[in-house]
Design a binder for these strands. Structure first.
Length: 115
DNA sequence: CCGATGACAAGCA
DNA sequence: ATGCTTGCCATCG
């Protein structure tokens, strides 16, 4: 029975997020809110972050380091220390936990996902 | 049940 | 640009 929105199809949402994050090109990044919109839940940005942390705990294949907040800040770096390093390794400029050329680095999942 | 918290976001001063 | 406030929703104590 359904207790909340995530219980409607948690695994489905998780795999959707998985697919989107996996589709982020090398050297690019996107935001939690953008992913939330892409999966059809514009106000679920917090949930995306929460799900990401869970995914990342047992799946290391996904480029979780390419997901930052809407301002290009690495809000996950505290619990994901390698994040900045991995971004820099992709020629993404990161200063003070923040992507500098965010407008250019930003990759909109809506450009790839079509319903 | 209620308040606090969090890998968030948008609006406003 | 910086800092505060509100809205959001699942978890936790």
């Amino acid at each position: 029975m359904i207790k909340n929105k995530l219980d409607i199809d948690k695994d489905h949402l998780t795999s959707l997020i998985f697919d989107i994050v996996s589709a982020i090109p090398y050297g690019r990044a996107t935001s939690y809110g953008a992913i939330a919109k892409a999966i059809g839940f514009p106000n679920m940005s917090r949930m995306v972050g929460r799900i990401m942390s869970q995914c990342d705990s047992y799946i290391t294949n996904i480029p979780a380091h390419r997901v930052v907040n809407s301002q290009g800040r690495l809000s996950a770096s505290s619990v994901f220390p390698d994040m900045q390093q991995k971004l820099i390794a992709e020629n993404i400029i990161v200063v003070n936990n923040k992507i500098q050329n965010w407008k250019q680095v930003f990759w909109n999942p809506m450009d790839e996902i079509t319903f």
